[in-house]
Amino acid sequence: QEHRIEISLETAPSHIRNIMVSEYAEVLEDASNGALEVVVYHAASKYAGSKVPIALAQGALDMGLPGTWHMGSILPEFNLPGLPLFYGRPREEQYAVWDGEIGQDMARRLEEKLGVKVIGRWIDLGYGQMFFVDDAVASHADLAGLKLRAPGGAANIARYESFGATAIAMGWGDVPQALQRGTVDGLLTTHEAVRSAKLWDSGLKHVFDDNQTFFQYVPMMSKQAWDELPEALQELVVDTWDASVDEYRIRAKNAQIEARDVNSQNGINRIEASPVAIEDMRSKLMEKQQALIADLGIDPVVVADSQRVLEK
């Protein structure tokens, strides 16, 4: 093998992203006829997710797939997916923005700032939903007064404020006990994360599916690793990725649906928000958007462009 690409992932080997990336690594190795060796490190054994962008920028790591939410502190535009504008949007509308000119523009900005190479379209983790211990939340009104663990980020906190709920920050490791002991009433996460941590053992009983944020991963390489590859291999890396994205997305979606079923078999009762309720909530959330954009320093042009794409 002439070239070695090391990929670092934060999630466990059995996580859908790891399974997919391991497959990508294999396909890529085979297609390169032995010119490439691709190694995948799991479970943050090399880098935690939030540290991946910097490791790529410093050239310490060859390739990573950090979540969009991991880049918000580096490039304000990556807070976009958390904005009210995107609240509860169906997949097709999300793809129209992130696969289109706006996603490409964000990738360009990221490449310029970090000196990395974004190698293609983003793949999905899935929608974040709200899970609860005691409260069978059936509408957004039921959220008032609840204490919910949230991943950090101003957009998440602002959304909780609009719900009348309180965002509580705590490490993932503290979550099971915090749920058991009532330190928090619930949390925002994906069905798949609840399944993998078996959070029903910690007392989760209800979920309110309102598809409130869509989590995606951005595939990228460090400039050093990218520049070292001859043009033919660069093309292979990009083409192999692009050829797999559509199938990845379908499988990620199915993984969430399967997780949802496992969760309900384990007693998590699901209530789905109606499209009308989601629309109403979005217009209410939109009142805060202007302030959020200013606070986060997001380029208003990108927001306006996104709005145009979404309204089409």
């Binding site: 466990a12 080997p13 059995s14 799991h42 479970a43 993932w172 490791g173 099971p176 006990q177 058991q180 993998s196 941590a197 078996k198 959070l199 053992d201 910690s202």
Partner: peptide, 14 residues
């Protein structure tokens, strides 16, 4: 144990 649970996809209370 928390680190193990996350890697092994096991339940922390158990």
């Amino acid at each position: 144990m928390i680190v193990y649970a996350v890697i092994a996809e096991e339940s922390i209370p158990r």
